[in-house]
Design a protein around this nucleic acid. Structure first.
Length: 224
DNA sequence: CCCTGATTCGC
DNA sequence: GCGAATCAGG
């Protein structure tokens, strides 16, 4: 596959919206995770909190010999392997300072506005690792539920009661004490009873009468 | 081991 | 420019 404008745009949007390289690769199709990362870097939109970065960044790392004969230029350079420059370059690196300076963090009374640390190459705002907000906040668990079988389900169809002859339409929500399954006799050839088949299988409307599809994540295909 | 992103380097 | 191989941390 080649990097068409559309694919690059999708890659960029997904990358900046926090999707992982794997997700992007899967979404695009025909490319590997590495390809996505490589392309992202070439596009100059790399900065994103990486599990590895910042620590490995300070690596004057003489990688063990790979394949490259180096430039066989007989450079007499005594300090080559000697030592990495001890200058830690006190650049705008607030995050790692926490380790060295364990003072208490100044309180942030200004609400939950993300703290902007710097501006990335694409012009987007780079945040500190601790400030990363999930693009899709996971729904909190509804509530804790006793492990013992509640009396409410005593006469209800539980997960263990399911077989291919009874309707497995869920009643209620998983995790709730009275969650169970319909349990009626199935509409032969279907996993649900007649009533729930009616809800599970909607008639396909003619093209003109379909409702527009829901908005895709990341904006979907180009909308001009 | 799985995942993540970063980097290198032959093509 | 591309991306597999590799590295390195979680």
């Amino acid at each position: 596959m080649s990097w068409t404008d559309e694919r690059i745009e999708k890659l960029t949007k997904m990358w900046e919206s926090g999707s992982t390289a794997s997700q992007i690769a899967e979404e695009l199709g025909g490319v590997s995770r590495n390809a996505v990362i490589g392309k992202a870097h070439r596009l100059g939109l790399k900065a994103r909190p990486s599990p590895v970065k910042e620590k490995a960044a300070v690596k004057a790392k003489p990688k063990p010999v790979l394949k490259k004969p180096e430039t066989s230029e007989p450079k007499a350079e005594p300090a080559r392997t000697a030592a990495p420059p001890p200058a830690p370059a006190p650049a705008p690196r607030p995050a790692p300072a926490a380790a060295a300076a364990p003072e208490q963090r100044p309180a942030q009374p200004s609400g939950n506005q993300p703290r902007i640390v710097s501006v990335g190459p694409g012009g987007f705002l780079r945040q500190g690792p601790g400030d990363q907000q999930s693009p899709i906040p996971p729904a909190p668990p509804r509530r804790l539920v006793p492990a013992k079988p509640a009396p409410e389900i005593a006469n209800k169809t539980s997960l263990l009661d399911l077989n291919d002859r009874i309707c497995r339409w869920p009643m209620g929500h998983p995790g709730e004490p009275d969650f169970h399954f319909c349990g009626d006799k199935v509409n032969p050839g279907f996993p649900y009873c007649v009533e729930h088949c009616g809800r599970a299988y909607q008639a396909q409307l003619p093209r003109g009468a379909r409702r527009p599809p829901p908005p895709l994540p990341f904006g979907g295909p180009r909308v001009r």
